[in-house]
Write a protein that binds this DNA or RNA. Sequence first.
DNA 1: CTTGACAATCGAAGCGCTTTTATGATAATT
DNA 2: AATTATCATAAAAGCGCTTCGATTGTCAAG
Lengths: 346, 346
Amino acid sequence: MATIYDVAKESGFSLATVSNVLNNGPRPVRAETRQRILATMQRLNYHPSAVARGLARQRTHTLGVLFGVVEPSAVVLNAYSAAVLQGILTAAADDGYNVTHYTAPWLDAERSLSSFRDRRSDGLVVVAPPTDSDLMPALAGLRLPLVAVSWPSERGDIPTVDGDDRMGARLAVEHLLGLGHRRIAHLMGHANLLSSVTRRDVFLEVLGEAGIAPPPGFILPGEYSTEAGHENARRLLDCPDPPTAIFAGNDEIAVGVVEAARELGVSIPGQLSVVGYDDRPLSGLMSPRLTTVRQPFVQIGEHAAKLLIQRAEGEEVAAATHLLAPELVVRESTAPPRTGNDRRSR
Amino acid sequence: MATIYDVAKESGFSLATVSNVLNNGPRPVRAETRQRILATMQRLNYHPSAVARGLARQRTHTLGVLFGVVEPSAVVLNAYSAAVLQGILTAAADDGYNVTHYTAPWLDAERSLSSFRDRRSDGLVVVAPPTDSDLMPALAGLRLPLVAVSWPSERGDIPTVDGDDRMGARLAVEHLLGLGHRRIAHLMGHANLLSSVTRRDVFLEVLGEAGIAPPPGFILPGEYSTEAGHENARRLLDCPDPPTAIFAGNDEIAVGVVEAARELGVSIPGQLSVVGYDDRPLSGLMSPRLTTVRQPFVQIGEHAAKLLIQRAEGEEVAAATHLLAPELVVRESTAPPRTGNDRRSR
DNA sequence: CTTGACAATCGAAGCGCTTTTATGATAATT
DNA sequence: AATTATCATAAAAGCGCTTCGATTGTCAAG
């Protein structure tokens, strides 16, 4: 396997000149010399070693990707992480970076840190790290450029990219208000997730602006799952004065709501409007097709990678939280409430 | 940033001993020495450089992944490549390998080869490379361990992993025969793809075994798209003596068939049975839920990665084609044909 | 006591490249 | 002819690690 030494010897030029040709600079090189050297490289079937180069330059032109929460065995099949990864790959490709997927398990800082700080990549995108792990602070303490995706960085020492939940929740609730709904309920995700709490807070806020205070029991804690949505929706729809619209914490919950409504003979959107959150791939295909807030997952990945590349190339990047705008996708699960007092009966 | 030199100096031991501790051997080390060195590492916050190690050892413990055909901007969102990638990641994780995703564009051999033969990874999995490119032969000519996924390797110089199309097509056609169908049509994918041709050949073969020769016009060339399926299905269903079942070249085509049938008022599976191929995520959710042949994409990725790791670790791997068994998923788009001669009328 | 065997450690070369410094040669410009 | 640019060189250090032959110390066997 030919090395740069071989090229130098064979072409008759010095190591320094060959290296200079290889990197297009910084010194000027006569055109003929360049030709001769390039020809020799071809002849010897020479390809430079990124590893040796990485060692010498202390830059590998590679981005590291680390998935936190999601099961390692389902990283890519999961729609969320697949989209984020897609964005990262796209942005990396644009700037000529490769992407290394770290497969080491996410344990505690002591055992996992070495795997990730191996200088193999110029920086790390950490996607959805566990909030209760000591690994993020430990990573942040390294010299390694770091960007997080979906990380409630209260300490603000790590640049973070995420969807703008405040804006998204506002879009959803204002959509329902705009249709004329007044009795609107909210099914939350798990109360220890920042996103759940934010969406709930904005829900209350926007209703408040419209002069509406939801009755007790119209905000139900739960989790981001179809089962939880189903159960909570049944409870809600079974009460004497049910809501005319439900803002579901995410699409999974919304699916549960739709199921519950079907079981109880409540028509959607005739008797009940439902808004989800995320716009999972299936949401546009279910029946009725779900009105939802589309999260810009691909863009989140792209943005995170771009930030990381900036950092890796020496630019200062503020450790701010970058929130990307979601988009309301209006489909068929929402409609104006039935006029007047014609409460549905079953 | 601490290096192994710092650890050696601080701990008072030699470089060689520190390295030996770092790698657990091969030389014996006194327990106390090991302790002292490990403690020093901790104190200095030392983490070894995978790059330097890679240079010294000429092994990086990293697998490279290269996607051929699929648009680079949609590598992961595409269900096929996502599943394969998933499998690769899983297998790599099992053996402690990281995975580097090469983002360089797939051009001709001359311009792209260097990007991929940069010694950054111990081997390459190439997924669905273009059949008309000179890059695969060029890659094969390198010293680099190479495994292909979905590569019609007539030359047989590269280990290849793929779904067993012969078996899958047989499953599909025998399923239809088993239900009692005799008038079965086949809508092919593009005739220059190996998979299309294989599925067609097996279709004929299996029918032949049952003593059936499909009438002319019952095998329609096309491509793996909903549009092509739609168009061909209309043509087929409009003829005086239409088939009672269609074996679609893949699920996309099958969707086109379902659409066409709906438009023409042909009920599925009452008047027409449809079998797809691939089992895309949506196929289980459409209406009617599609009977189809599930390709083992995740396993294909896993198998490819395992083969590659074997090669990278010095084992000989025959340059054979490894075909993984698909699985027939029976859902609601197939049923026995209407008995007797009660041809449907519209 | 020797001697050999073994355990524990060291020294130094090597992996393939970049980069810097000092220096020289050639060609183009006054 | 002197000055300046331009192109190339050699030599050497450095990147952070591995690896192997050599060396030292220790102890049981002879």
